[in-house]
Amino acid sequence: MPIKWILHWQPNAGHTVNSQILAEVSQCVESINGVKEGKWKATLSFYRPVLKEQANPSEFPRDFLGISLPEQPNKYYLVLRGQRLVLEADSTIQTIMEKLQSYKTRVALNFEGFQYQLGDFQLRVGKVVSIQSESLRGIVMEMEYRPISSWEKSHKIMGEFFDIWQEALSKRSLAGHFVHMEPNFGEFGLSGQYTLQHTAVQYATIMLQMIATAQSVRN
């Protein structure tokens, strides 16, 4: 499984994301000779507990995430961030969760956009939209390097490519930048060999960040 970094757009203080930024980012990928290949889409749902009135909410996780990824559409990933747990399941687990009626999906987000080929790299640029309202919640970028599946061994080349990308994008003077957050995969019981569970954990991590950013803008 090729290594992947998942980046998210961090607007400068006082700014928000908008579709103009998304268009500029896509143009920038093409300007460094990224070849457009097709569309991609991932989905992420927040599951929240259904509690009786007398329940003590602190005894239950506030939420967990359910993630489906285009690489394995018949799989589904559940992530409990606070408890550092990621579960890989057949996508039928969604039906089981529905039938149990103990946790329900409250918010669902689509990550969708175009993918580009750039030598040994594959780049995916996508908007984050709520399924209910279609409003733009954020921008993400997947940066995949196909020849290597070791997180550690790929670190140097990924870091270098990230720098090149940031430099190319900086010429456009956009009010923000892409951020790479590196989760501690070991805490989730994951090894250094990259898997889709690593991708799910990265999505869960950037979600936290995006929520924090949205809240700070609102306040």
Partner: peptide, 21 residues
């Protein structure tokens, strides 16, 4: 009867304990 199965990774017991089962 209705029956749904899902193959899962080995940490599934911990997951359901954490969820409150």
């Amino acid at each position: 009867r209705t029956m749904v199965e899902s193959k899962v990774s080995k940490n599934v017991l911990r997951l359901f304990y954490l969820l409150g089962y």
